Simulated scan of single mutants.
Amino acid sequence: MAVTDEAIEKIKAMIVSGALRPGDRLPRESELAAELGLSRNSLREAVRALALMRVLDVRQGDGTYVTGLDPQLLLEALAFVVDFHRDDTVADFLAVRRLLEPAATALAAARIDTATIEALGDRLDALGPHPSVEELIAADEEFHRAVVRAGGNAVLCSLLDGLAGPASRALAGYALTEDAVSRMLHEHRAILTALRDRDAEAARSWATVHIAGVEQWLRSAD
């Protein structure tokens, strides 16, 4: 194991064990290096890496702190990494979304509030039957984000946010195919009806159909 990797693992172990908690200030560099049996250089490299991963927050002139370790914060790096995907892996990202998002949509059926349902319905009405591709993609992202957030699982929400990039790029091509726009709008309304009816299984099924359509088109187009 590289020295920097070893340093990262040792700091991680302190956080996982509870020796360092969210919001705690790390000991002084010299003290922490001695405690962990590390050189100060390797400790600095580890701190830099963990700061990039949003595990640590380096405050100039104040010290280094453990962040709140919120899922949304920690998983921001996922979206950054996902944006480097190759064209031949987009379908795989969509397959992961197909596994996760229907579950999130089913959760939302029990938890989404009436105001959110009405707002999503109004947004669909305002979109009309013939939106541009840009309008459709923006509305699709807004729709799915609102539904997933309504499910109340912050980790699931952050994971799906991280997969949004490849999904949007695939959608840009799919939306140009015959009847794709009307099909997508119909599926959005079906998901919304299931949510309004508090029907978790119908919500799960329509979300699966909706996402699988784009995935299947992409695989057949390769």
Rank of each mutant, 00 (worst) to 15 (best):
K10Q: 14
V16W: 06
E29W: 09
L32R: 06
A34L: 12
S42D: 14
E45C: 04
A49R: 12
L52Q: 15
D57E: 15
V58E: 14
Q60G: 12
G68F: 04
D70L: 07
L73T: 03
F84C: 05
H85A: 11
D88V: 04
V90R: 11
A91M: 00
D92L: 07
R97P: 10
L99I: 09
E101V: 13
A106T: 13
L107D: 15
I112V: 15
T114A: 15
E118L: 06
E118Y: 04
E118S: 07
L120M: 13
G121F: 08
L124N: 12
D125L: 13
E134I: 01
E135N: 08
L136V: 02
E142C: 03
F143I: 02
H144Q: 02
H144E: 05
A150Q: 01
V155W: 01
V155A: 06
L159D: 01
G162Y: 00
G162V: 00
L163Q: 03
G165F: 05
R169G: 02
A172N: 04
A172T: 05
G173H: 14
L185M: 06
E187N: 10
I191H: 01
L195I: 02
L195M: 03
D197Q: 08
D197S: 10
R198Y: 06
E201S: 14
I211F: 07
V214C: 03
Q216L: 06
L218Q: 01
A221E: 10
D222V: 04
